[in-house]
């Protein structure tokens, strides 16, 4: 019996573990080794320089700026996205007319590639002839029409937050919807019989039962927000004056544009640790909550 269980374990786990180890972990670990070198990415040779890259990073002003921006960006995106996604998932879980339509519409932006989404909003927010300007001038709000959302240091990062939430809210919503589908309708019926208010039903039935979906969404959006690259790169280019530079764009800049590959990989490693702390911390916290209920 025990042996059979082992065979089963092997059978179920082997394909995924093998593929993942070979094509994800092995290249990652051997890639991270470059963090200890001064390789520029193109020369045939490099030197081992130990922890020098990390020492340099700790003195790199751009890195701190990017780190700060990444934190602000990630927290804003994760919170906004999840609150909205859960709200609309609950709304669209009901048997309303047109729910299928609304679900498809809400998911639509997630289908678009980031490059197109970014270009689209660049065109809209463009301060010279963008739709933003055209629209607010037409309704007579001239002050707002003049806002240069992508080109001002105070708004650039938050404009990227908005676009990111716009793009990925539907993605999170789909996962919440899947979670809501697994809640038996009887529970709500019982709740209604007891005269529980909508809010109470949410707190006592919905929220605990979609805990797995919450865990998944929180962690996925945290990981993706910290790694964000395309949107920032195209929407603001990290500017103006690095005001929206995030770690993802900073890594790209040093690893491939300024030919400091080893340095870029060292930054990746730090980013990896930051994400791991946030994600595994959340996992630990959220899982504990799941067990509690």
């Amino acid at each position: 019996m025990k042996r059979r269980r082992l065979v089963n374990l092997f059978l179920f786990l082997f394909p995924a573990t093998a593929l993942y180890t070979l094509f994800v972990m092995y290249p990652s670990l051997s890639g991270l080794y470059y963090a200890l070198t001064d390789w520029d990415g193109i020369s045939p040779s490099y030197r081992m320089i130990g922890m020098d890259n990390f020492k340099d990073i700790l003195q790199d002003k751009l890195f701190y700026k990017a780190l700060q921006n990444s934190l602000i960006f990630s927290i804003a995106v994760v919170v906004l996205k999840n609150v909205l996604a859960l709200f609309f998932a609950i709304m669209l879980d009901r048997k309303l007319r047109l729910t299928g339509f609304f679900r498809s519409v809400f998911f639509l932006p997630a289908i678009l590639s980031s490059i197109i989404v970014a270009y689209l909003w660049v065109t809209i927010f463009n301060p010279v002839f963008g739709f933003w300007q055209v629209f607010f001038e037409a309704i007579g709000w001239d002050r707002i029409a003049q806002w240069d959302l992508l080109g001002s240091t105070s708004t650039a990062l938050f404009t990227v937050v908005f676009v990111s939430v716009w793009q990925t809210m539907g993605y999170a919503m789909v996962i919440y919807l899947a979670g809501l589908q697994t809640i038996p309708a009887e529970l709500y019926d019982a709740g209604q019989m007891d005269g529980a208010s909508k809010w109470k039903q949410f707190v006592h039935i919905t929220f605990p039962l979609i805990a797995p979906a919450i865990t998944i969404n929180m962690i996925l959006s945290t990981i993706n927000a910290f790694k964000e690259f395309d949107l920032v790169y195209i929407l603001t280019g990290g500017g103006p004056f690095d005001s929206s530079q995030v770690i993802g764009t900073a890594i790209y800049k040093v690893a491939f544009e300024t030919n400091q590959f080893g340095y870029g990989i060292a930054m990746s490693l730090i980013l990896f640790f930051i994400i791991a702390v946030f994600a595994l911390g959340q996992l630990w916290y959220l899982k504990r909550r799941e067990v509690d209920y």
Partner: peptide, 21 residues
């Protein structure tokens, strides 16, 4: 410079030139 230089990239700059702005 035309207002809004920081908010536009190369493509939009050309587009503004194209539009006679």
């Amino acid at each position: 410079f035309l207002e809004g230089a920081l908010g536009i990239g190369r493509d939009q700059a050309y587009q503004a030139f194209y539009q006679g702005k």
